[in-house]
């Protein structure tokens, strides 16, 4: 193993043999960094997620051929591959259209697959009074720390109301 022919400092790990049309061979020996700088390898994050490809093969073999790359949202027309390339989804329906691979992706990025927390009031789900109480008590602490006594008094009254309810 020799040194990189370009920077002459690092170990050459990238070996390329070019054969032109007349059959002349030209060899190049570069380190990773120089190879990257010459655009011979993709530096940084690979455009294709190997894990994703593996998963898609597994999914395809399980479901009998429905490959991820064929997934397309019938509402906005974006394909799963397009989404993976640009990182942004095309419409709210994609979350259902790409449900299977997306759930795996969410599991990896957030460590969870189900929402916790606020929901639109229009859905008519009841609020938990315990949550409100915890929040009010912390707001009271903040108000006292910030010497906002008027607000602190208001908060104290609301906490009493809730506790007596």
């Amino acid at each position: 193993m020799g040194l990189c022919e370009r920077c002459k400092k690092a170990q050459a790990t990238f070996h390329l043999t070019n054969i032109d049309r007349s059959g002349n061979k030209a060899e190049r020996h570069l380190c990773d960094r120089c190879a990257g700088e010459e655009g011979l390898v993709q530096s940084g994050k690979p455009a294709v997620d190997v894990d994703e490809i593996l998963q898609s093969f597994i999914a395809a073999s399980k479901s009998g051929g429905a490959e991820l790359s064929n997934l397309v949202c019938d509402q906005c027309g974006i394909s799963y591959v397009e989404f993976r390339n640009q990182g942004l989804l095309g419409c709210p329906n994609d979350y259902d259209a790409f449900k299977e691979p997306l759930t795996r992706l969410l599991e990896r990025t957030h460590g969870a697959t189900h929402h916790e927390g606020k929901t639109p009031k229009s859905l008519g789900l009841p609020r938990k009074p315990q949550q409100d109480l915890r929040r009010l008590k912390r707001q009271l602490d903040e108000a006292v720390a910030g010497e906002d006594y008027e607000r602190a008094a208001q908060l104290r009254d609301r906490i009493r109301e809730l506790e007596n309810a």
Binding site: G87, L88, L89, P92, Y95, D96, L102, L105, L106, T109, H110, A112, T113, H114, H115, E116, G117, K118, T119, P120, K121, S122, L123
Partner: peptide
């Protein structure tokens, strides 16, 4: 502010995923 706006807007909300966003890194809350 969010509550007040919600009175006039039909937010994209999913029973499992919560508030839907263009980038999945923001989905949920």
């Amino acid at each position: 502010i969010d509550d007040a706006l919600e009175a006039h807007l039909d937010y994209a909300f999913h029973a499992q995923y919560g508030y839907l966003t263009a980038c999945p890194t923001n989905v949920g809350t």
